[in-house]
Design a protein around this nucleic acid. Structure first.
Lengths: 130, 130
DNA sequence: CGGAAAGTTGGATTGTTGTCAAACAAATAG
DNA sequence: CTATTTGTTTGACAACAATCCAACTTTCCG
């Protein structure tokens, strides 16, 4: 697997970050990462109702924008938020976005365990609520 | 001219705002509005090197997202930031975006008067710098 | 070694976006 | 009333983005 390139902190661009965060699916992933320091790709993509490759594409978008870090270990890849880098580059931005997301309409259902009742919410369903 | 619809404060969606702000041209417009309370469409679009209709399209995007207010008076339309509404809905968000924009690479050149030397900067050129 | 696991990559499709140009609409100035 | 000003709207087009599926790569487990 090729090295999974990340932008240097000083190369993170505001427009890229905003665009990366403007998708409901990615926003949900980022929110999940904010709550649980580190996740594998599979865990971060749980309950999204999206194809594996689609989620992978979202990781790439977030990584390219400088929002998340992908650290490979064995055959797993651990994802984490680049909180410090983002804070250094755009103070307060990530915090306000996450706070805004938490205050959004009924998205609490997404945080429940994989086998909880209530059915799956698709990406489209997410879009309705954010 | 049709009424130019604006979303109610509670209907402003985070993803829409982030997407609206993720374009360099719109970010510049928003920045300009942040510095000079109210502007006509023509004034807000000065020095962008873009076609009139293109800029109008950006206004629409910003308006639909709930970022700006378009108030018609006579044959002019005055644009202003919906600061209070945005602050009520997503506290701190606009502020951190504006602060991040101001700290970005050499965009100061855009603020100079219309006839200043140095040539025009196109939308593409803006994109390079943000 | 052979198969499963965890992800990425490439192609195809469908939909959205940024841009220009030309046409339109409404208010104002001569 | 006619022409000008100030913007919007519509159409066209190329570029981009979100999604799925199939194929591939690497690593790990028997």
């Amino acid at each position: 697997m090729r090295p999974l390139p990340h932008p240097a902190t000083e190369d993170i661009r505001l427009t890229d970050v905003l665009r990366a965060l403007s998708d409901p699916v990615r926003l949900l992933i980022v929110h999940k990462l904010a709550e649980t320091d580190e996740l594998t790709c599979a865990d971060a993509g749980l309950d999204l109702g999206l194809h594996k490759s689609t989620v992978s594409h979202h990781y790439r978008t977030l990584r390219d924008a400088g929002v998340i870090l992908s650290k490979q270990e064995g055959r797993k890849i651990y994802l984490s938020l680049r909180r410090d880098d983002l804070e250094a580059r755009f103070p307060g931005l990530l915090g306000s976005v996450l706070a805004a997301f938490r205050d959004s309409p009924p998205l609490a259902g997404f945080a429940r365990p994989p086998s909880a009742p209530g059915g799956d919410l698709t990406g489209a369903a997410i879009a309705e609520t954010v």
